[in-house]
Computed example of a mutant assay.
Amino acid sequence: MFRTFYIFLIIALFSLSSCKNKEDKELAEWIEKGALVVDVRTPNEFERRHFPGAVNIPIDSLPLRVDELGPKDKQIILYCQSGGRSSRAKTFLEEEGFSHLKDAGGIDHLFSSASK
């Protein structure tokens, strides 16, 4: 019984790992193709460290600045400090009709994905 459980667990973890690598590869491809990278953290957080070329539109300002994102079919990558705000931003933008969005989660994940 335990052996079956551990085999299942190993397979599940391997599957999650391969999915994560696919997501990282897709993020890197989008960046390479010129996707708009949007940092939804505060201006202070952005000043301390941000992804090169990213645009800072804090999550609280996003509803007022949606027009700055361009066409709704443009590829947009969202990130924040740990993933919570970028997830909320993605949901909001999907509700606004944006169709090509990726939530990179936290800034460290975005940096590691871009370097692959």
Rank of each mutant, 00 (worst) to 15 (best):
P43K: 10
K116W: 07
E94L: 02
E26I: 09
L62N: 02
I31G: 07
E95T: 02
K20A: 13
D60E: 11
L27P: 07
F14N: 15
A89F: 01
D39I: 07
S86K: 04
D39Y: 01
H50S: 03
E68S: 01
K116E: 08
L36D: 03
G70I: 04
P43A: 11
A89V: 04
S82G: 09
L16R: 08
F8W: 02
I76H: 01
F92P: 08
C80K: 01
D67Q: 06
N21W: 08
F14Y: 05
Q81L: 05
S115V: 15
E45I: 05
D67T: 04
I107Q: 04
E29V: 07
R48Y: 08
G84S: 12
S112R: 06
I10A: 09
G105T: 07
E32G: 08
D67G: 03
L64C: 14
S17E: 13
G105L: 02
A35I: 11
S113L: 09
Y79M: 00
L16Q: 10
D73S: 05
V66C: 09
T4S: 15
R3E: 10
G70Y: 04
L69Q: 15
E23L: 12
V40M: 01
L78G: 02
G34A: 12
E29M: 14
S87R: 11
V66H: 06
G84E: 13
L69M: 13
H50N: 04
E32C: 15
E23R: 07
V55N: 04
E26F: 01
L36M: 04
I107W: 05
L62T: 01
H100T: 01
Y6D: 11
L13V: 14
D73F: 10
G106K: 05
V66N: 14
V38Q: 00
I31A: 13
K90S: 03
C19R: 12
T4F: 14
S18L: 07
